Computed example of a mutant assay.
Amino acid sequence: MSAAALGAILLPCTAFADLPAIAQRQRGEKKTFTDNEITEGFLKIAFGAEYHLAGRVDRIRKYDGPVRVFADGSRADRKTQLAKIVADIAARVQHLDIAMAGSSEDANVQVKLVRDRDLHRTIATFYGSERAREIRSSLDPQCLSGFRKNEKFEIEHSDVILTVDNGDFVFFDCAYEELLQSLGPINDTASVPWTMFNDNVSMGYFDVYDQYLLNLLYDPRIKPGMTVQEVKALLPDVLTDVRAWVRKVNNLP
């Protein structure tokens, strides 16, 4: 980020652009969106929940402080890749303080790295056997995330489960989506074609459209517990500033 001293922030398109599957998707990526396209997508993913366990889902949910991520697993290469993903997210979301933690005690996001054959067993240890069966039948996940929030709708702790042996693209795709969802945008929607929070879309990197959504969510003016109407009143001003930031970090015209 030394370029910031010169008044510019120049970032690579992704930490993993050398992967053919990712490079191909980036070449065809849509990067220009109307205010309505961004706003509509934000309201759909920031409110609601793809799989609802408990509590209200009609309020903004987000961390209201530093986010620290710890990876638990035996694959050193996946831990290194996860750290690059976390750094990429940190560089692209202006008001989000996110970094790796040195120990699980210092983390509020716990990432469990498991083999594919152990995925459903691991889900059961987190949520119980009955709930794990419901998750498997309704979502059939390759990876999973969830969070715990307080009465103010501030996220206090997140758990992410990632498989390490389904190939690089699946790992990157899952890691970006589940880490970002663990920060608050927990809803998936098939009606927005440009977001990774769509079960029909696989990215493998932090795309421009979702950078808009996460920067809206973590703007200081968007607070935990806000309703849809409260957020709608603020979005025009917030989006103006978010557009300037996303344009800068992606070198957009």
Rank of each mutant, 00 (worst) to 15 (best):
R148D: 04
A132P: 12
S103N: 10
D77A: 12
R131F: 10
V86K: 03
Y127H: 04
A71V: 05
A87S: 13
S103I: 08
Q94R: 15
V86G: 01
E130Q: 14
A107V: 07
A91Q: 12
N150Y: 05
E156Y: 00
E151K: 15
D106F: 03
D118E: 12
S103V: 12
D106V: 04
D140Y: 15
M100H: 05
V93Y: 06
Q110S: 11
D88T: 01
A90N: 07
R78N: 06
E134V: 10
D106G: 00
E156K: 12
N108W: 01
A87R: 09
S129R: 13
R117N: 06
V109W: 04
T163Q: 12
V114G: 03
H95K: 02
L139R: 05
S103L: 04
A91S: 10
E130T: 14
L162Y: 01
I161P: 04
S104C: 03
D140P: 10
R131G: 00
D77Y: 06
N150I: 00
A132F: 11
K152N: 13
Q94Y: 09
L119R: 09
A101N: 07
L82E: 02
K149R: 03
R115I: 01
Q94I: 04
A90W: 01
R75P: 03
D106E: 15
R115H: 14
N150A: 01
D140A: 14
D118S: 12
R131N: 14
R148P: 00
H120L: 08
F153L: 01
D116G: 07
V160H: 10
S103F: 08
S129L: 05
H120G: 02
R115Y: 15
L96N: 02
R78C: 14
P141V: 02
G73K: 00
S129A: 13
G128P: 06
V86M: 03
G73R: 05
S129G: 00
G73V: 03
V86Q: 03
E134R: 05
Q110L: 15
A83V: 09
F147P: 06
I135C: 06
A71M: 08
L162F: 02
H157P: 06
A91H: 10
V164S: 04
R121I: 05
G102R: 13
H95V: 00
G146Q: 11
G73A: 01
S158N: 14
Y127T: 09
S129K: 12
E134L: 11
T80E: 14
A101D: 11
K84I: 09
V164I: 14
S138F: 13
H120Y: 13
K79R: 13
C143G: 15
I89Q: 09
K152T: 13
H157F: 13
V164R: 13
E156L: 13
K149M: 07
D116L: 05
H120D: 12
R75G: 02
Q142W: 03
R136P: 01
R121G: 06
Q94P: 03
F153T: 04
V111Y: 08
E151R: 15
G73T: 03
K149V: 02
T125G: 06
Q94D: 08
D159N: 11
V109C: 07
L113Q: 01
I123T: 04
E105N: 14
H157L: 12
S129N: 10
R131C: 08
E130W: 01
R136M: 07
V164L: 09
D88G: 03
I123M: 11
A101K: 04
